[in-house]
Amino acid sequence: QWKVGDKCSAIWSEDGCIYPATIASIDFKRETCVVVYTGYGNREEQNLSDLLSPICE
């Protein structure tokens, strides 16, 4: 189960590419979260089910 502060990978809606991110907040009722893309600072809402394991850098 994901928690705030977890590192993950998420698909950015603008280009469909996968980027490393950190979970900033979680809404368990809606099963969504807000991620912050590492190195970019962009925030975006994602479905918890769409999150991927962190990418090894």
Rank of each mutant, 00 (worst) to 15 (best):
I18L: 12
D50F: 10
Q46C: 04
P20I: 12
C56D: 15
C17Y: 06
L48C: 15
N42M: 14
L52A: 02
D6L: 09
S53Q: 14
T38R: 07
F28Q: 08
A21M: 06
G41E: 04
W12N: 09
C56V: 14
C33E: 00
V35P: 00
E57I: 13
V34M: 08
N47R: 15
S25F: 11
C56T: 15
E44W: 08
L52D: 01
T32K: 08
I26G: 01
L48A: 03
I18Q: 04
C56Y: 15
P20D: 12
L51Y: 03
D27H: 04
I18K: 01
K7D: 11
E57C: 13
Y19H: 07
C17K: 15
E31T: 05
R30Y: 09
Q46D: 03
L52Y: 10
E57G: 13
G39V: 10
E31G: 15
V36R: 01
C8F: 01
L51E: 02
G16P: 06
E57F: 13
K3C: 10
I55M: 14
I11M: 07
Y37G: 00
G41V: 05
Y40C: 14
Q1Y: 12
G39E: 04
V35A: 02
Y40T: 15
I26E: 02
S53E: 14
G41R: 08
D15M: 09
I23H: 01
R43K: 10
K7E: 12
V4D: 13
N42P: 02
S13I: 07
L48E: 04
V36S: 01
L52H: 01
T32G: 05
P20G: 08
A24S: 07
C8G: 00
S9P: 05
L48R: 02
P54G: 08
A24D: 09
Y37R: 01
Q1S: 12
W2Q: 13
N47V: 04
S13C: 03
K3G: 14
Y19I: 04
L52W: 04
G5C: 12
A24C: 07
D27R: 07
P54N: 05
L48D: 00
D6E: 02
V36T: 05
D15C: 08
T32F: 09
L51T: 02
I23L: 02
G5T: 03
K3A: 12
L52N: 02
T32Y: 07
S49A: 13
I11T: 06
E31I: 09
G5M: 03
K3Q: 14
I55N: 09
I11F: 07
E57A: 15
L48T: 03
D50C: 08
T22N: 02
A24M: 14
I26V: 03
Y19V: 02
D27P: 00
T22V: 14
R43H: 10
K3T: 09
D6V: 06
E14V: 15
S9F: 15
L52C: 04
V36K: 02
E14G: 15
S25L: 10
T22K: 05
I11K: 09
E57S: 14
G39S: 07
Q46V: 11
